[in-house]
Simulated scan of single mutants.
Amino acid sequence: MALLHRATVTPSKLDLIAGWLPGRRWHQGAAGDLERVAAFRFDDPAGAVGIETMLVRYGDGPVHHVPLTYRDAPIPGCDVWLLGTAEHSVLGKRWVYDGASDPVYLCALAGAIVAGTGEAEEFVDVDGRGTLERRAPAMTARGTGVPGGTVPPVEEIRRIEDHGDRTVVHVGSLRIVINRRFTDGDLPAAALAGRWGDHPEVILAYLSNG
């Protein structure tokens, strides 16, 4: 379960992404107003880190896949992956990172792929006193694995590489490929797929031995 608050975030998440995205090697499209296409969340079992996957685009340009984590303190040595900081009206100052650099996101992603799970249910604390309201998902995600599958330990990140429209993360014994833009293709054996509206299913990320 992902617990959300009715709050203002300054600057907004879209503003942070808009200032960061054009500097990525995998960015495509003209500058302009950035729009959110869809989003979903994973749950951090420890309840400490917010994990949100955002799909965004400029106008009719390609959709970009931007997983984010929200933390209450900086990750040592990860400044290069920091989008910026924001003030959350309920939670205070938040450090916003590219999920590719955050072991908590990578663990949630690998877990969803291997165990065949998907997005977390989202509940909004509507009054600050624990009254929860379920929020309908903006998109769905599904792993191709088997329920109860064992996830290899997500240990120290060894290397992060950008290859065209993909970010490849070497972490522990895993090689996690995050598709930043989407192309047609068969679904890999160990993957996370996503769907929103009437858009065909896309491959968000997968595990690779290559």
Rank of each mutant, 00 (worst) to 15 (best):
I157D: 03
H5N: 15
R41G: 08
V154W: 05
H199M: 14
A39I: 10
I51R: 00
E201P: 06
D184Q: 14
A110I: 08
I157Q: 00
E122T: 10
D198R: 05
P153E: 11
T167L: 03
Y105N: 02
F40N: 11
E119D: 03
R166V: 05
T69C: 01
V169N: 02
R158L: 11
V90R: 15
L21C: 12
G92T: 03
P67W: 01
L3S: 04
D186V: 13
N179D: 13
H5P: 10
G111N: 09
D98K: 02
G149Y: 02
A205I: 00
R180T: 06
P74R: 14
K13E: 02
T150Q: 04
G59N: 09
N209I: 14
A100Q: 07
D162Y: 02
A38D: 04
G116T: 09
D102A: 10
A138S: 07
C78S: 12
P137G: 14
G194P: 03
P200K: 08
P152F: 01
Y97G: 01
R158K: 04
W26C: 01
V96S: 06
A205D: 08
I203G: 11
G128K: 12
G172R: 06
Y105W: 12
G19Q: 09
A39W: 08
M139W: 04
G148E: 00
A46G: 10
D60C: 04
L83R: 08
A120C: 09
V49A: 10
W81N: 01
V124Y: 00
V154C: 05
V56H: 01
I51K: 01
A205T: 06
Y58E: 13
P188C: 05
R175I: 06
L132S: 04
V124E: 08
D102W: 09
T10G: 13
R24V: 03
R36A: 02
R181C: 04
L192A: 10
D165Q: 14
I203P: 09
V177E: 07
P22W: 07
D72F: 00
W20V: 09
L187F: 14
V49D: 07
P62W: 07
A39Y: 12
P188D: 11
E87Y: 14
G148L: 00
W81Y: 09
H88G: 04
A141P: 00
D186F: 10
D184C: 15
I203N: 09
Y97R: 02
A86G: 00
A110G: 06
S173K: 12
H170V: 02
H27F: 15
V37Y: 08
D125P: 08
A2W: 05
K93R: 11
E156C: 11
V90D: 14
T150A: 05
A38L: 11
D127S: 00
G128T: 05
R166Q: 13
E122V: 13
A193Q: 15
R159E: 05
V168M: 03
V114S: 02
A100H: 04
W20M: 07
L187H: 15
S208Q: 04
S208E: 02
G143T: 02
A193C: 15
A100R: 05
S173W: 02
K93H: 03
I160V: 12
T167D: 00
A46Y: 15
L132Y: 07
K93C: 07
A31K: 11
T8A: 01
A189K: 13
E155H: 03
C78F: 00
E87I: 10
P152R: 03
E87W: 13
